[in-house]
Nucleic acid binder design. Structure first.
Lengths: 149, 149
DNA sequence: CACGATTAAATCGTGTGCGATTTAACTAGC
DNA sequence: GCTAGTTAAATCGCACACGATTTAATCGTG
């Protein structure tokens, strides 16, 4: 095993800070694009999932986003208030709430088509570089989540 | 230039989501370590800066963290309430507030010595891999921040 | 069938992030 | 040396995150 750092490193050397600040930088870049559609970034992530597969439970959405109902319930209620989704208890299991797109929610996908391209341009990276970085980060994230257990 | 994606990709393919979720995973890993010291993760980032150089203005701290006074002022007030820093107007320029470590704040650095090592272990990466990923993310972040102008 | 254990959402409180505005202090130009 | 413009913090409102708890529904075992 390599040596762990002993002295306190400087801020720019923190991998955690690089991830933290890059996440916020993405959020700032997305904000004006999504604001035009009436979405926040976490709301956009929920919509992306519903566009891929409609009629999902809160738990299923949260499982892929690594978020729980304490965060998702109010977020989805705001999506409902905006008219993009409806929420209803699953008749087969009343514990679960199923989230379903409205016509307006489905229509939003067309407007969102240009968003990934805009973000891609701003990264200044090639598709290969993006894929590698995404893979590396995903691996790291899964290790961190496993280590926290 | 490479082609930008046209169809809406799936969630795991989003680089932004990889950064977003990795940031949260780091936060969850840090939480129990920092909680024992009475800090949150953003508060820890401020303390790391003050340990490197004491007596900084809110603006200087925010410049390196990419945060503004709307976020930092209440955060630093909580650090003050916890007894780790003091805040006082700079006599030479009363617009600025200088943040200074207390004895308790300086003492906390010793307790924090083990934190980077714990995080390093959890990443499962080598120092080289960490440095490369940190560099790649920092480059990306700076491009995103520049693009948002 | 009963009943304790488990599961899914919702609720609550605290602490960020951040756009927008406000307040106070400095600076520049006349 | 006065005033317009700029700068630094602070304030305000809203939307996440998340630990902890609560509520309601289902499951498992006898």
């Amino acid at each position: 095993m390599s040596d762990a750092p002993t002295a306190m490193p400087a801020l720019p050397d923190f991998l955690c800070f690089a991830a933290y600040s890059t996440g916020h930088a993405f959020n700032r870049l997305y904000k004006p694009l999504l604001e035009a559609m009436g979405l926040t970034y976490p709301q956009y992530l929920v919509m992306v999932q519903l566009w891929a597969e409609d009629d999902q439970t809160v738990g299923a959405l949260g499982g892929r986003l690594f978020l729980e109902s304490n965060t998702l319930t109010p977020l989805i209620k705001r999506l409902e208030a905006s008219g993009f989704v409806t929420r209803r208890r699953d008749p087969a299991d009343e514990r679960q709430v199923r989230v379903v797109l409205t016509a307006a929610g489905r229509a939003l996908e067309a407007q969102a088509q240009s968003v990934p391209g805009c973000i891609f341009e701003a990264t200044g990276l090639t598709l290969d570089e993006i894929q590698r970085l995404t893979r590396d980060l995903t691996t790291l994230r899964d290790r961190l989540l496993a280590g926290g257990t």
